[in-house]
Design a protein around this nucleic acid. Structure first.
Length: 502
RNA sequence: GGGCGCGUAGCUCAGUGGUAGAGCAUCUGCCUUUUAAGCAGAGGGUCGGUGGUUCGAGACCACCCGCGCUCACCA
């Protein structure tokens, strides 16, 4: 803070605004008002001009453009819904016009007046009274918008600096309206998902974020510390093991929409904290779960977007009806000619390497199959597709396949080559689960930091008996990326993780 | 961590070794239906930092810092 009580990066533009603020105060215009009665939003007036024409309205918002013409002025103010033009005349609003001269782009005002159209046909509010609500001391990046002859919106000098946009998302939201749209969509996707699951009778629950053991996924955790207990805790990497305990406890359907935390790299598709929906339903298997995914995603598309066909990375993608269901083993065989069930580990390694997978050679056979799949099959999965049945080694929480040796009953959903969800028939045999954990334990000792920890309490819960259960995980951020056609996870997270400033 | 790129006014950007620039924003004056309003004028810079090459560096070189994209790891 400097002597003016502001952040130290004050400049001449801000000094000028402080002078204006003082001048407003000395003329009895309070620059930080307490409330304002709003009767309408900008878009409802513009969308329904006939209804509002000549009627009085009160609107409030941020000044985004000013055109002063001596004793009259036009301005655009932006509220939650968009922008609308206002018209002010000195002979009608008197002293307020003097105050208006001291206002800047970025200030927040409330106006009341009647609705009219200008000569050039723009719906506007003819102001009869104006109230300053908040004086803005820091200039916002000015972008000018204009509608060209073909009706397209053209933006000049758009605020584009990605770092500043993410760090100061509040500014991004003010000046880039399409950003706001994405987050409104995100919010609606989550609430419609919740509505769908609630309507199906599943119970939304909350499980611990701070966990003494972490589990449910292969990932490295964040570590934190409890002072009184003097113990390290982990931030959860998944909800799975706690939610399945609840199935043991007698809830037949539970879900949680939660933040998970993984201590790994950050890039276009990874943020250290991210939002996951996990669902577990008793007495069901993974085949049943595929239908749920189809129906739920279809529901979201219709409710939030009012359509089921999306343009994603240049592909027309349809979220309708049954998705294709393909066998992982079969798809790999089609492309590489290799039957991973009968092939040796070294054959799969060679194939993975020759198809461009970055394998070191110390991977398990299951991991190599997964690698081979990722480089050969996954990129071709454009339309929504379920890939079915995975190697047992890479799925320590999934139930052994009822027919296929060495495989588990698991599927992942893919769209335009990206993974959308992961699900399985849950492993409920406590002896098998214990053995799988022990296998993971060996991998940990061999240096695999992402191998699962043994969770004896979870095994104990299975010993009491967990009904057959289908489980599902959907990465909410990635789902939103898909449906809003955003290529970076940072564009669907309001405050993406950034290095600290300076 | 590797590769590529970027860093110049509040914002968006020019500036390829010779006086630091433009548009918008800001300020002054004029302007009562304008709309990237207009007209006339003005102010605003540690050219990311440090060192080097050079008579002379915003530019060239080295190193550092910050950021973006991308590859690897991962969901």
């Amino acid at each position: 803070m400097d002597q003016n009580g502001l952040q130290p990066d004050i400049n001449d533009l801000m000094k000028r605004r402080i002078e204006e603020l003082n001048e407003l105060r000395s003329n009895n215009f309070e620059p930080f008002a307490y409330s304002y009665d709003v009767s309408n939003y900008s878009q409802e007036i513009k969308n329904d001009f006939e209804k509002y024409e000549s009627k009085d309205v009160s609107i409030a918002g941020r000044i985004m453009a000013i055109r002063r013409m001596g004793k009259a002025s036009f301005a655009h103010i932006q509220d939650q819904q968009g922008r609308i033009q206002i018209y002010l005349r000195k002979d009608e609003i008197g002293e307020s016009y003097t105050a208006f001269k001291l206002l800047d782009i970025g200030d927040i005002i409330g106006v009341s007046g009647f609705v009219f159209k200008t000569r050039t046909g723009e719906t506007s509010v003819h102001v009869k009274s104006m109230t300053l609500l908040t004086k803005s001391l820091r200039p916002i990046p000015i972008a000018k918008e204009v509608i060209d002859e073909e009706g397209n919106k053209v933006v000049y000098d758009q605020f584009t600096d990605k770092e500043l946009r993410y760090r100061q998302r509040y500014v991004d939201l003010i000046v880039n309206p399409e950003v706001k749209d994405v987050f409104i969509k995100r919010s609606r996707i989550v609430s419609e998902m919740r509505a769908y699951l609630d309507n199906a009778g599943y119970l939304e629950v909350e499980t611990p974020i701070l966990q003494p053991l972490y589990g449910g996924a292969a990932a490295r955790p964040f570590v934190t510390h409890h002072n009184t207990l003097d113990l390290n805790y982990y931030l959860r990497i998944a909800d799975e093991l706690y939610l399945k305990r609840l199935i043991v406890g007698g809830f037949d359907g539970v879900y949680e929409i939660s933040k998970d935390f993984r201590n790994e790299g950050m890039d276009r598709t990874h943020n250290p904290e991210f939002t996951m929906m996990e669902l577990y339903v008793a007495y069901k298997d993974y085949i049943w779960m595929m239908e749920l995914v189809e129906n739920m995603v279809n529901h979201l598309c219709k409710k939030v977007f009012n359509k089921t066909e999306f343009e994603i990375e240049g592909h027309a993608v349809k979220f309708e009806g049954s998705w294709a269901r393909v066998s992982m083993v079969e798809e790999i065989r089609k492309i590489t000619g290799i039957d991973v069930l009968t092939a040796s580990r070294s054959e799969i390694y060679k194939a993975a390497e020759s198809h461009g997978a970055d394998v070191k050679g110390d991977e398990s056979k299951g991991k190599l199959i997964d690698e081979l799949f990722e480089v050969t099959v996954q990129p071709n999965l454009i339309q929504p597709t379920f890939v079915i049945d995975y190697p047992l080694e890479i799925s320590p929480l999934a139930k052994k396949h009822r027919e296929k040796e060495g495989m588990v009953e698991r599927f992942e959903g893919f769209v335009v080559g990206r993974e959308l969800c992961n699900a399985f028939s849950e492993l409920n045999d406590p002896v098998d689960q214990k053995e799988r954990f022990q296998g993971q334990s060996v991998m940990r000792e061999e240096g695999d930091e992402e191998a699962h920890q043994i969770d004896n309490d979870f095994v104990r819960s299975l010993e009491y008996g967990m009904p057959p259960t289908a489980g599902l995980g959907i990465g909410i951020d990635r789902l939103v990326m898909l449906l809003t056609n955003q290529s970076s996870i940072r564009d669907v997270i309001l405050f993406p993780q950034m290095k600290p400033e300076k």
